[in-house]
């Protein structure tokens, strides 16, 4: 097969583009999951607090907490995990405050995003970057 200079260039660029696809697809998986929850609505940053450590030595048990007074439900997303959704808290009438905490798995260094749906239908969003030394997805 005779490759002209132009063909070679096109092939090389195609290769680069193809190798970038998985990364882009993963980033958008988190965005898609967030958009599916908010319905594409605008999010504001005030009135929601996300507690996450700056550095987590072990990604198998990263303590995170959320607090969003007046929220109906709060969803936590891990943007770099194979499945971005982590946990959904739905608060009932007997809840004392709209806050909760748990321990989550993070596969690598990434942003953790909390999105709260408020009683009036608006959305609030907070995020934090967590550095992970040992990933928590096995493999």
């Amino acid at each position: 097969m005779n490759l002209s200079r132009r063909d070679a260039l096109v092939l090389a660029m195609g290769g680069v583009a193809a190798s970038m696809v998985p990364f882009a697809a993963m980033a958008s998986a988190a965005d898609d999951a967030i958009a599916a929850f908010t319905g594409g609505a605008e999010t504001s940053a005030d009135g929601i607090k996300l507690d996450a450590p700056e550095i987590a030595e072990n990604g198998n048990g990263v303590p995170v907490g959320v607090d969003a007074p007046g929220a109906v439900s709060i969803v936590i997303f891990a943007t770099g995990n194979p499945t971005p959704a982590v946990v959904t808290f739905n608060f009932g009438p007997a809840a004392g405050s709209q806050s909760a905490s748990t321990r989550i798995r993070l596969s690598k260094t990434q942003d953790v995003v909390a999105v709260a749906k408020m009683a009036d239908g608006s959305f609030k969003r907070a995020s934090a970057t967590v550095k992970v030394t040992i990933g928590g997805c096995g493999g």
Binding site: G61, A85, V87, A100, T102, R103
Partner: peptide, 20 residues
């Protein structure tokens, strides 16, 4: 109802929750 939590695979072994 106090809280209704949906857990995904990214919750740690021995799932722990704290709420009010």
């Amino acid at each position: 109802n106090v809280i209704d939590v949906t857990l995904e695979a990214a919750i740690s072994t021995n799932p722990y929750f704290e709420f009010t």
